[in-house]
Amino acid sequence: MGDLKARIGERLLKRDYGEILSDCGPSRRTVRLLRSLLYSPDDLLRWRTVTMFGWLAANHPKLIAPDVQRLIWSLNDEAGSIGRGAPETIGEMARSNLPLAREGIHIVAHYLEDRETCRPPKRNLEILIGALWAVGRVGGKHPSVVVEVSPTLLSFLADTDPEVRGHALWALGQIRSENRRDAAEARVGDSGKVVLYEKEDLRETTVGSIASVLLASLNEAPRESDDVSLG
C-alpha cells in the first residue's frame, strides 16, 4: 500500500488526476489512500489531493459519495480527530458537483460563523483557513450558495492572522460580495503574508496584493450588476 500511495502522490504532483484511477483503479481503496494524503505534511501534495476530490466529484461522484458525510463528521469536535483538509475538500467537491456536497458546504459555512471554533483561543487556524478557502471556491461558481457568509468574511478582515485576512478577502472577491470593493480598498496596504492555493498551485502573496488584484479586476471589468447581495 505504501508504494501505491507514493505512486498516487507522484501523479498528484504531476496533475495526472485521471491517470490515478487508470493506475490504481476506481476503488474505495484508492479513495482511502487519497483521504490519508489529506493529512500530508507536504502542503502542495495535500492541496492537489483536494483538487483530486473535486475531479472525482465531477467525474466519479458515486465513488466518493460516502466521503462527504465522513468529512463532515471529521470536523465534529466529538469525532476525536482533526479533520485536516476536510473543509477544503468539501468545498472543492461542492464547486465541482453541488448536489453531491451541498449539505457539506452549508456546514463549512456554518463552521465559520461559530465564534467559539473560529476565534482565539480555541480555533484551529488550518481548519479555519481551509473553510475560508472552501467558501471562496464554491462562491466562485455558485455565489448564491455561500453569499450569506459575507458579513462573517468581512469580520475576519480584522483578524490578527494575515492568512485569515487574506483568505477572507480572497473569498469575498470570489463570491462577488457587494462589499468587496470597500474591503479590498481597506486592505491594499496590508503587507501580511499569505500562501494561497490557486490554479492548482501554491503561491506566496500578501493581503495587500490580493486586495490589489481584486480591485484591478473590478476596475478592468466593472460588474457591479453581478454583485451578490444578501438581499
Partner: peptide
C-alpha cells in the same frame, strides 16, 4: 469545542 492534533496525523 475545538479541533486539535499534530501535523501529519488525524488522530
Amino acid at each position: 469545542g475545538g479541533l486539535v492534533g499534530v501535523l501529519g496525523y488525524g488522530g
